[in-house]
Write a protein that binds this DNA or RNA. Structure first.
Length: 608
RNA sequence: GGGGGCAUAGCUCAGCUGGUAGAGCAGCGCCCUUUUAAGGCGAAGGUCGGAGGUUCGAAUCCUCCUGCCCUCACCA
């Protein structure tokens, strides 16, 4: 590959690139010169040398890009991007870098060679995982993926392409490779100079094995499937910046295998739940996310406005009362993966939007439910994680049934060292809680139930590795749960504890409408001043109950929390593709100055 | 909302008690037919998150703002 034959005569010699005689200039001066060049002129084209080089390889001579086209290449959006005052077809306001500009130029150069940057399809014969399972004699494969690594050796290049489930090595040899319109050196030069890491390509060829024994596609023909304009993150470290991982999850997914594994786990867990519940005769249903009143839990809802009805509307905080309406409607066993929303504080263990898996089974009580829960979770964990033993925060949690049961009161006694019966009055209990958990705010306003709950959350729960069933919750904590026949102060309720967290909350449902009405009223008196909206919803639900609800046990699991346990993660955002983020002002640009002042001007959304 | 931390090239990171910014990867030019983060040579690439202030001089010190992470409080 000597350089002289393919250097176009109208171009400067390779040794003296135009506009780059910067050695005599300071770094800064050189930079500003570069900026001026990109900002304005289409004059001496520093890139033309490369354009010609590709063309120059052609046996037909030098089919270099015609002057008008070449100008177009530079006048393309990327060529103008440096000048932010101009609003071209490209509305991206982020600071433009040289690499992006160059890639946009490449689109035009490819076009001049008859290669489309964004063709409409590519018929592949195998996924990469399928290809990896083929014998090395396999021929006539067509594979597709994103180019993620490239190792060039002169006339031979190894590269990796990556699809949903697998990365696979390809090899291109200069004298054997082609595109639809070019062959040999020309095609190879296209791959070397106009195809970038991040591009999607399709590759046709035969399998072979390299000297090191790796199954590899020997590429006879490649096709550009999509041009990428931005460089991929660092190939070795991947994307580390947490904020970028959340905001640009696609990059996290491209670069970080553990992220892909985490979301694959999510997929398997959901599939395993569906499979198991379906097999047990549960019916998957969909109930409303947009509701006239938020009920089913004590939480602040997101409020919106229903235009046509001119009334407030809410995003559900739980599917519970709708699923119970279906039980009244005659369903025996229902479940829903319910995307739910709670407008409350953000921290690593709370999301505003999260997935709640709930099921309800008629004619079961909470004991039936506990037996089923052991089976269900053990099956799901084994199917999704491969073993009933989960490693979490350096400890092992074995979900093999049966799991121990521990009474709420005993948990307090054993783990917090407080026996509730020793504090018969609210005042004495309050004093004790103050002593044990001095950092809790609002103790003065808490009733007995909340005080016990605080004690449990602060002093007992963190130490309970589990899995275990926590039973015998005080009635004050469970307005929708059935009162225990044995002890009227308790409910027929259980939680599953694992890793110091509550994974599942379930109970024998309260199905007696008159008692339910009383319990709601107690709650309202205890908690807030019973606003009209909340009462209306409860009325509607009570109406439903009055038609008769069979004995029923219901069950709820926070999917993200469960996934965190299985994925050994602390932050729920790690198991959600796109956690909610405050829009980022575009960082520095002129447009930003306006948005940053105290007028509270509208920000990024316009551009986004 | 309170407290603590972080923000430097597209990415991953250095940058000392203030003296005007550096590496690796990616990109660009060149060499290279069996690599696995290939290697080698060369040249580039930066409003040091933003705005003020202190100073002869600020990535570095101070104040405010923005975003993110952790933590406490509330709810799952």
């Amino acid at each position: 590959m000597s350089s002289s034959p393919r250097t176009c005569t109208l171009l400067p010699a390779p040794g003296s690139p135009p506009g780059r005689n910067a050695q005599s200039l300071s770094k800064k001066a050189a930079r500003s010169q570069g900026a001026r060049r990109t900002g304005g002129a289409r004059a001496p084209l520093p890139r033309a040398g490369r354009q010609c080089k590709i063309g120059g390889l052609s046996p037909q001579g030098c089919p270099r890009i015609p002057a008008d086209r070449r100008a177009a290449a530079v006048d393309f959006p990327g060529g103008r991007m440096a000048d932010t005052s101009e609003s071209g077809p490209d509305t991206d306001r982020r600071p433009v870098n040289e690499q992006r500009r160059r890639r946009i130029e490449k689109i035009a150069e490819l076009k001049a060679l008859g290669i489309a940057a964004y063709p409409d399809r590519f018929p592949r014969t195998h996924t990469l995982a399928e290809a990896a399972a083929l014998p090395e004699s396999a021929q006539g494969l067509a594979l597709a993926g994103r180019l993620t690594l490239r190792r060039r050796f002169g006339k031979l290049t190894f590269a990796h392409i990556q699809d949903q489930d697998k990365a696979f090595q390809i090899a291109l040899e200069r004298d054997k490779v082609a595109t639809a319109s070019l062959a040999g050196k020309d095609a190879y030069a296209v791959f070397q100079h106009l195809i970038d890491l991040g591009d999607f390509i399709g590759c046709e060829g035969d399998l072979m094995r390299t000297k090191t024994g790796e199954l590899t596609l020997s590429v006879k023909r490649f096709t550009l499937l999509a041009k990428s304009l931005r460089p991929l993150p660092e190939k070795w470290h991947g994307l580390r910046d947490l904020e970028l991982c959340y905001r640009q999850r696609y990059l996290d997914l491209i670069m970080n295998a553990d992220t892909r594994a985490r979301f694959a786990l999510r997929r398997r867990v959901i599939a395993a739940f569906r499979e198991t519940l379906d097999r047990e005769g549960f019916v998957e249903v969909t109930t409303p996310t947009l509701v006239p009143t938020a009920s089913g839990a004590l939480a602040t809802p997101f409020v919106t406005h229903h235009q046509a009805l001119d009334m407030p509307a809410y995003l559900r905080i739980a599917p519970e009362t709708y699923l119970k309406r279906l039980i009244v409607g005659g369903y025996d066993k229902v479940y829903e993966f319910a995307q739910s929303f709670r407008n409350e504080g953000m921290d690593p263990s709370h999301l505003q939007e999260f997935a709640l898996l709930e099921y309800y089974c008629a004619f079961w009580n909470y004991e039936d439910n506990m037996r089923f829960t052991e089976k269900l979770l053990a099956a799901v964990i084994a199917a999704a994680a491969g073993s009933p033993v989960v490693r979490f925060q350096g400890r092992e949690i074995d979900f093999t049934p049966p799991w121990p049961r521990i009474a709420f009161r005993d948990a307090l006694t054993q783990y917090a060292g407080v026996a509730p019966e020793d504090f018969p009055t609210v005042e004495s209990l309050r004093a004790e809680v103050k002593k044990r958990a001095p950092d809790v705010e609002g103790i003065e306003h808490m009733g007995r139930g909340s005080l016990l709950d605080q004690l449990y959350k602060k002093c007992a729960r963190p130490q309970m590795l589990g899995p275990a069933f926590l039973v015998g919750h005080p009635i004050e904590l469970s307005p929708l749960a059935r009162r225990s026949d044995a002890d009227p102060q308790l409910t027929d309720r259980f939680q599953v504890l694992a890793g110091g967290r509550e994974i599942v909350n379930a109970y024998s449902e309260l199905v007696a409408p008159i008692e339910q009405r009383e319990r709601f009223e107690e709650q309202a008196a205890l908690r807030r001043e019973g606003d009209a909206e909340a009462m209306a919803a409860e009325d509607d639900y009570l109406l439903c109950m009055e038609y008769g609800m069979p004995p029923t046990s219901g069950w709820g699991l926070g999917l993200e929390r469960f996934l965190c346990l299985l994925a050994d993660r602390e932050n729920l955002r790690d198991v959600v593709f796109f956690p909610f983020m405050r829009p980022q002002s575009d960082g520095g640009g002129a447009a930003d100055a306006g948005a940053a002042d105290d007028t509270g001007a509208p920000q990024a959304p316009e551009g986004a």
